[in-house]
Write a protein that binds this DNA or RNA. Structure first.
Length: 680
DNA sequence: GCAAGGTC
């Protein structure tokens, strides 16, 4: 009976199903219910290949409120509004599974792919008649070999994957619900709030940046600005000669340099720097560059890349790889690209090269190669931003196949008095890949030359007073980079999670970048106070370690899930008690960093956590106050300035933080009450 | 409705 049936091969997505069918020579194409499926014989057996569209099942619960630890897998299209499109794939797999005699999970070989295929077979088929196709790329060779050597179902990978889903669900749903209850109790009304293993550490990172920037007091620095005549040109240069100059020292130095009036070249060094071509894009690199070059947000870049991919113009964009397959026919792609306006000349140069080996980066991805143009050309002109992203991908691909660029760097050491001054000339000797990828970061190019022993006239000397600036606010792009560096989220989800933080009203866009809102601060604070694990990237590391142990058989899914529940449950019960009691509003407010009636900041009414000279200050203004004191101490070592003058100066500086300015204003307004000149 | 992860 079994031999009369067919082997149902489950692919993770339609495009993968097409490739698997092509590799196995299954040419019978059918469209069932709008879904492409493939049919034919492979090594004497009847095969049918049908695609999922990522996860077809989702965790869900019927219980309201929290704590909630009961959940089950349900059809995703039933519970997620934006997943209606998954229904037709769900129905087709369900009906094809009925007639199958055997099943092959041929989804991507990672824990999510293992779960996607497993749940489909479990619900619609028969796990005891199932096997796993193990391949790391969708090339014909790998696929044929995978199907000749089908493996038993990878049940430990499946357990690890199921565990990841359950842990994220338990943390996310419970803490989100707790936050919503908190909001209702303390502020009144319903608001959708959320927390999770990836979004909460990201939110807290923005919160920390907010504190760092808004409590920032500029440092003062004195340096000497020199105008030199180099050949026929004037060159301006600023230096403190490696000394932390006081104002007085700087003034003396200025006079001494003016008296000498010239500098002498005492050392000349020249070297050629090789700028290697960049690797082709993975998704994070593309998102970073699209923002840097064209200010397109990471989420929009992904959605544009997605549509270019669906139009067959580029390869699959949700990849982490910076490598291209050895089998890729670069000449064919180049010949095709040469028909596009703007690349023709450069591409013909490339085609003259005897061999074409793309530069590679270290990042890998088991499922997909780096992003590259397919060689298919746009059938109609691309729209503005589509054109920008496509152009970036094409140029980066061409750059990866190009020659190195060469930079001539000459360093001159000048002596004036007993001090040394270094000036650098940078000249591009060979453009190489920079000719097609002009966005390469090479620094300012400035060419000049000097001989050893030459005297350089000093035309002008000034003392310059500068003030330091805080680190930049995050942008969507740099925040995404931070997530990537911290190892949280995946290529496909990071940008979306940043958008979620905006949608919740936790983050806002300002002229200087991303900032946290009042609501975001409240959620950060509660999360830090009550669910500290969720507040750091550490949770992801621990979960990953445990998943690895499930894969090796050292731990079971049940053990891991139970442990998570045992950590969460008492705390959820505790906060629930607070939420149900009428006397606890003040304690709840304290946990959120809000004032609790008795002790509030004299500036902003938040919970007072510091007290200085009888001034009650919240954590923000308290930190700002401390920073002001420290900064004044440093300033007064360098320049004669009274505390009042210092405060007034801080108020005029753009880089002073908001909380710092508020504290400075408060102190100035109360200067009659405090004798702080001497106290500091 | 709430996560994070797939994919359209």
């Amino acid at each position: 009976m079994r031999d009369s049936g067919y082997v149902l091969v489950i692919a993770e997505k339609p495009r993968a199903a097409d490739k698997i069918a092509a590799a196995l020579n299954l040419s019978g194409k059918r469209v069932v219910n709008g879904v492409r499926v493939w049919e034919g014989f492979f090594e004497g057996r009847r095969f049918l290949v049908a695609p999922a569209v990522g996860h077809l099942f989702s965790l869900d619960t019927e219980e309201r409120g929290f704590p909630v630890f009961t959940y089950r897998w349900v059809p995703r299209w039933l519970v997620e509004r934006r997943s209606r499109h998954a229904r037709k794939y769900f129905e087709v797999l369900k009906s094809l599974a009925r007639g199958a005699s055997e099943y092959v999970n041929a989804c991507d070989y990672d824990i999510e792919g293992s779960v996607i295929g497993y749940l489909i077979i479990k619900h619609f088929g028969d796990l005891s008649r199932s096997r796993r196709a193990k391949f790391s790329s969708l090339t014909k060779e790998e696929l044929v070999s995978a199907f000749r050597n089908l493996q038993p179902l990878d049940l430990r990978m499946v357990e690890a994957g199921l565990c990841r889903h359950e842990v994220d669900w338990i943390w996310g749903i419970n803490v989100s619900r707790a936050l919503m209850s908190f909001y209702k109790k303390v502020f009144g009304g319903f608001k959708i709030l959320s927390a999770g293993r990836v979004q909460t550490p990201t939110l807290i990172e923005v919160f920390k940046k907010h504190v760092e920037r808004e409590c920032f007091v500029p440092e003062i620095k004195f340096s000497i600005s020199l105008k030199l005549r180099v050949g026929s040109e004037e060159l301006s240069i600023r230096s403190d000669f490696g000394k932390d100059l006081t104002e007085e020292e700087a003034n003396r130095l200025k006079l001494a340099i003016e008296r000498v009036g010239k500098a002498r070249v005492v050392d000349v060094k020249s070297r050629t720097e090789v700028l290697r071509p960049p690797p082709p894009f993975n998704l994070p690199d593309l998102q970073y560059e699209a923002y840097r070059v064209a200010k397109i947000s990471p989420a929009l870049t992904l959605s544009i890349a997605e549509s270019l991919y669906l139009d067959q113009l580029i390869s699959y964009p949700r990849t982490n790889s910076q490598k291209l397959p050895k089998t890729l026919n670069h000449r064919a792609i180049l010949r095709s690209l040469s028909n596009l306006e703007g690349y023709g000349e450069y591409v013909s140069e490339l085609l003259k090269k005897p061999s074409l080996a793309p530069a590679e980066g270290p990042r890998e991805d088991p499922a997909h190669p780096a992003i590259h143009p397919t060689g298919y050309l746009p059938r109609k002109p691309l729209k503005d931003r589509e054109r920008v992203v496509y152009d970036l991908i094409v140029r980066r691909y061409l750059a990866s196949l190009s020659d190195e660029a060469l930079l001539r760097i000459s360093t001159y050491v000048l002596r004036v008095l007993d001090l040394e001054l270094v000036i650098t000339s940078r000249e591009l000797l060979r453009g190489g890949w920079l000719k097609i990828y002009e966005y390469g970061e090479v620094g300012t190019l400035k060419k000049f030359s000097l001989r050893l022993g030459e005297e350089v006239p000093i035309l002008d000397v000034r003392v310059v007073k500068t003030f330091s600036k805080p680190s930049d606010a995050y942008t969507k792009s740099s925040l995404l980079k931070w997530m990537e560096r911290s190892g949280i989220g995946t290529e496909a989800t990071r940008a979306e999670i940043i958008e979620t933080l905006f949608k919740r009203g936790y983050l806002k866009q300002t002229t200087s970048g991303i900032d946290i809102t009042e609501l975001g601060s409240v959620v950060s604070t509660i999360s830090t106070n009550l669910f500290s694990e969720l507040s750091s990237v550490q949770l992801t590391r621990e979960v990953e370690e445990k998943l690895d142990k499930i894969i090796t058989g050292e731990l079971s899914r049940d053990e891991v899930v139970r442990e998570v529940a045992s950590v969460l449950k008492p705390r959820l019960i505790n906060i629930k008690k607070l939420l149900e009691s009428d006397e606890s509003v003040n304690e709840l407010r304290r946990l959120a960093g809000l004032n609790s009636g008795d002790a509030s900041c004299v500036i902003c009414q938040r919970l007072a956590e510091f007290s200085y000279e009888g001034l009650r200050l919240c954590r923000f203004h308290g930190i700002a106050y401390e920073r002001l004191r420290e900064a004044y101490e440093a300033w007064s070592k360098k320049t004669k300035i009274s505390f009042v003058e210092f405060l007034n100066k801080v108020l005029t500086l753009k880089s002073s933080g908001k909380y710092v300015k508020e504290v400075a204003e408060l102190l100035l307004s109360r200067r009659g009450c405090f004798d702080f000149h001497n106290r500091l």
